[in-house]
Amino acid sequence: MTDEAQFVAALTDPTRAVPAGLVSPRGTTDAKRFAVYRNNVHVSLTAALAARFPVTRMVVGDDFFAGMARLHVGQTKPTTPVLLHYGDSFADFIAGFPPASELPYLPDLARLEAAWSDSYNAADIGGLSPTGLAAMAPETLADLSLALAPAARLISSAYPVGSIWSAHQQVPFVPPKQSGTEHVLLTRPQADVRLTIIPPAAAALLRALADGLTLGAAADAVFATHPDFDPGSALVGLAGLGAFAAPQQELSR
């Protein structure tokens, strides 16, 4: 092994001895000195997860979060120095972490928080406004393909994770409801991320559009499961939230 590989092996496995050749000024290996590096790695990456998953941390408490994060850090290192994206697999880790199973909504709450930071850091691209939508020729709408805005994220959960997330933004804290499906849309209509709980039919429309269906085909697919669906008002509402990117032809004009 190279010097670096030996260093990393000992850094990430506390049962390994300090590599030979790393010494104190007395010329001896010193476990407490090397432990500073081990601790820095764990503490700084745990802090990166705490920064991206603040509500998850509030829900489980600092100590539980620190223990859970530390295990994840031990298993999964960042793949780049850009820690904005670190924790993409944390929700899946939580789903498989038995001590967290008392809170069945926790993995989806973590998914929502990961999506929130993705939305926060997404590209600034002009969206399709309701006015822009209204200006389109009605006969072209059925064949229109609408791309989601870079900052748009949809989290559908069997648990009310949007309400739980929102409750933790309030002072004083009002306990949220604990059961019920929610479709949570994150967008950045102006500067900041906005969380909106949207109806199931609107969520189905967004998913169909995100899958590449034209507006007409997407609306037909939603009608099949939601006979009362009103595509016009859903579309205007979603556009008003900044869910859609401006269509290509709009951008090129």
């Binding site: 260093f7 990393v8 820095n40 700084s44 960042p78 793949t79 780049t80 120095p81």
Partner: peptide, 14 residues
């Protein structure tokens, strides 16, 4: 300093 190795990014100045 160094901070990345095959295992990934270690987020410390080594």
């Amino acid at each position: 300093a160094w901070s990345s190795h095959d295992e990934g990014y270690l987020n410390d100045l080594l």
